[in-house]
Simulated scan of single mutants.
Amino acid sequence: MNFASDNVYGVHPRILEAVVAANQPLTDVPYGHDDGAQACEAALSRVFETPVRAFLVLNGSMANSLALSAMSPPFGGIFCHEGAHIQTDECNGPELFTGGAKLLTLPGEGNRITPQAIERRLRHFVHGEHGARPSVVSITQATELGTVYTVDEISALGATARAHGMRLHMDGARFANALVSLGCTPAEMTWKAGVDALSFGGTKNGGMILEAVVFFDPALAEDFLFRRKRAGQLLSKGRYLSAQLLAYLHDGLWLDNARQANALAQALSRGLALVPGVRIAQPTQANEVFALMPVALCGVLQALGAVFHEWPVDGIDAGMTHVRFVTSWATPMADVSRLIALAQQASARGVDGDD
């Protein structure tokens, strides 16, 4: 019963088969100039219904850092939520690869920022060149608390960014999960809503090494080949990356995987909500379930083999803890059912942990 992350599960068989198939030709063009890389850009252009520039990279943190490096000058300011992955989990990578741009963090319910929060923060930028130049707004879709920005919310953020001469970046590590949750098109959730660049994630949704930086504004991609190379993200045998992305997109596999993960999260959320003493802390809108539960119940579930993380938040009552469960395309439904049953049984016994 491993709910620690969608990263803990393996590679979808169809993607693995595509990697094996890419190994069949004796030779291929190296360093991302294989035919598959061009096919990936064309495929993503079809997905987003507009010509895009797309560059495959090895992980999501670098996708974010390099995308932001193309969007912000070294003296720029990047607005993001205080709990955003670029702030809490990328070891100052955005600051390093932008050459020193400053992350300007904002509060917001459900790890979502608002135009109003940005406007309030901008009122303090009255010292001209003595402070960072507001350059980028970065949002995570789905967020680090499993919530999802609506299309209207993204559009409002895009309009705010443009009104102040800034760009809008989307960290889409769980892009597919957010997309199927909203039921909109990829275009509606990105460039039509004002997104200039997207970190398009696939590793969490069935890929092996499957991330891409997608630019809807081609001017941002002008020197990205050099940025990717300098950062050590140019894989010499790039055909194994492009093979993954093409398989991921083929016949809607990426959307099917996300629907499966989201459905499992919904089932888990509904089941846990019925356990006495447990409260779902955030709306379950993608493939993450956040819950408040007694510390004792948390310990019992972990002792019985459930793997998940306690997730720090402020304002928790004594004796309670905030936890995160993540489902994936490959999470067994039996594991979801067993976790719910164990929680119900432990609660009925007064959370004493006895079998």
Rank of each mutant, 00 (worst) to 15 (best):
G128Y: 09
L246T: 02
L66P: 01
V300D: 04
V278W: 00
L106H: 06
S242M: 03
C80Y: 01
G99V: 09
Q260G: 04
P218Y: 13
Q87I: 11
N2K: 13
T114R: 12
I280A: 08
V8T: 13
P294G: 13
H130L: 15
T150F: 05
A176D: 07
A178S: 14
G36K: 02
V289F: 05
P74D: 09
F200A: 00
A273K: 06
A265Q: 03
A142S: 13
S347V: 08
V275T: 11
E82K: 14
L245D: 01
E119M: 15
A258Q: 02
G165V: 12
A273G: 12
F75C: 11
L66T: 03
G350N: 14
A247S: 09
E82I: 15
P186L: 07
H309G: 13
R46E: 11
A43K: 04
G165Q: 12
N205R: 05
D355M: 15
R230V: 11
T105G: 06
A159M: 11
A286W: 02
S242I: 02
G238Y: 00
H81A: 13
F55M: 05
N7Y: 13
P13F: 12
R120F: 09
E153I: 07
A173Q: 08
A343T: 03
P25L: 09
W329E: 03
V313F: 05
A197G: 08
S61W: 02
S72P: 07
A101C: 11
H322E: 06
G206M: 02
R123K: 14
L44C: 07
G83D: 08
Q87R: 15
V213S: 04
R46T: 12
V351D: 08
L264H: 04
D34F: 03
D217A: 06
L26H: 08
L157D: 00
G36A: 12
V29C: 07
S155F: 04
D251Q: 15
D196C: 08
W329D: 01
E109C: 11
T50L: 13
L264N: 01
L292V: 15
E49T: 08
L66A: 05
N262F: 00
H124V: 08
S69H: 05
F325C: 03
A221Y: 05
L342V: 09
T160F: 01
S347E: 07
L255R: 13
L145T: 04
A318V: 15
N64H: 03
S181A: 14
A267L: 11
T27M: 14
H169N: 07
G32K: 01
A296N: 08
Q116M: 13
N92C: 14
Y9T: 14
R228E: 08
Q233N: 11
E41H: 06
K102M: 15
R112S: 04
L253G: 02
A267F: 03
R167S: 10
H12L: 07
A197N: 05
L292D: 10
A4R: 08
P51H: 12
T185G: 10
A156M: 09
